[in-house]
Write a protein that binds this DNA or RNA. Structure first.
Lengths: 188, 188
DNA sequence: TCTTTAATTTGATAATTGTCAAATTTATTG
DNA sequence: CAATAAATTTGACAATTATCAAATTAAAGA
């Protein structure tokens, strides 16, 4: 079940067998139904999860409106970055948009792996670096002034999201409202 | 000269003396005058720098307009994240907004330190994590729909930027144009 | 200090996007 | 399959922000 994740880690830096064994031992597989809550705002994020199947959405509340900050799917690691690293409650919610299977590792066990296996720090660093520049690309898109340009970013880079995710979530992710998104899609 | 950087690293994870020695040996101190170019778009970013004194601006060109993506000052690490990690040419320019002194470490030497000293991976990982959630906070701000709200973010969190940086740079950083920023500041 | 350049402000107007209401289409459930 | 709910579209209008031009103020160099 966890094989693709292990393979991915090994592709970054070969893991000693004991580390692989520990990973398999310490990681729990958990299934979530569509609309299940994976993390609630106000709680400390204590886990890193890898998505084995499915798709999740990160959002926070601005007044009464849900602002979507991230969509993540098969292969991605999920956690509430701010809360997980600072050990403070965050304002991010994570919910399953589809039936989703996660491999879950607790913060303390992650720290144990970092301490015990130097090689795991390399993997942790590289994955964090990848997240950093993927986020930079997102920011790049958000700074585009025209709603149309921001929409084209999704069309170009993540067209499958348009099949899998209702437009009302994509609209706040792109920093526009639902009607504006609908009109952009409608014209031409 | 490099003491504050060394202290900061040590506060994350105590470094063996040989690592400190290597760091001091491999790092170059370089001074830049105001408006000097630190990195040009189209080149691969081969260095990580720590700002010992001064302030720099990251920007890219959208048509003919300069879009500012980052301000960084004393204590911060600078590099073009995308280019540095992917080893491909990026579109980011970095220039000094004030006379600036940098401690500079080459990519290859950084990799040497990562390979030679496991402890350095911990430091690299933690710093990358910090950058990641600082960027998340910025993204959070960029998603705010009202220009006024985005401006208040600067007022609240980085008021010194308003003293040190011309408004024309702050305006594109906040995703609005100069006149809009001026009007927001003017009213009340 | 005077001159020149850069930074900031102000005004008039146009373009873009948001808001609210309602209609239509699509999906889901008993 | 009908009934209900959810998703999407459309319309009218208002609010926000951009654009272009010009004036004013502040800063920097001779």
């Amino acid at each position: 079940m966890l094989t693709p994740v292990i393979d991915y880690f090994n592709s970054i830096s070969a893991m000693p067998q004991e580390l692989v064994d520990d990973l398999l031992k310490l990681t729990n597989i958990k299934e979530f139904k569509k609309d299940d809550i994976i993390l609630k705002a106000g709680k400390v994020s204590n886990h890193t999860c890898w998505i084995l199947k499915g798709l999740v959405r990160h959002y926070y509340l601005k007044d009464t409106e849900e602002i979507t900050t991230k969509f993540l799917w098969e292969g991605a690691a999920i956690t509430s970055v701010f809360s997980y690293y600072t050990r403070k409650p965050g304002n991010e919610n994570i919910v399953a948009l589809e039936d989703t299977t996660l491999a879950i590792l607790h913060y303390d066990q992650m720290q144990y792996l970092y301490k015990t296996y130097p090689a795991f720090n390399v993997i942790g660093r590289v994955i964090t670096e990848q997240y950093l520049y993927m986020l930079e690309i997102e920011v790049y898109n958000l700074r585009k002034s025209k709603a149309e340009d921001r929409y084209q970013f999704i069309v170009k880079h993540f067209p499958h999201l348009l099949q899998r995710v209702p437009l009302k979530y994509i609209s706040t992710y792109l920093g526009m409202n639902l009607e504006t998104l609908s009109r952009i899609r409608g014209k031409k």
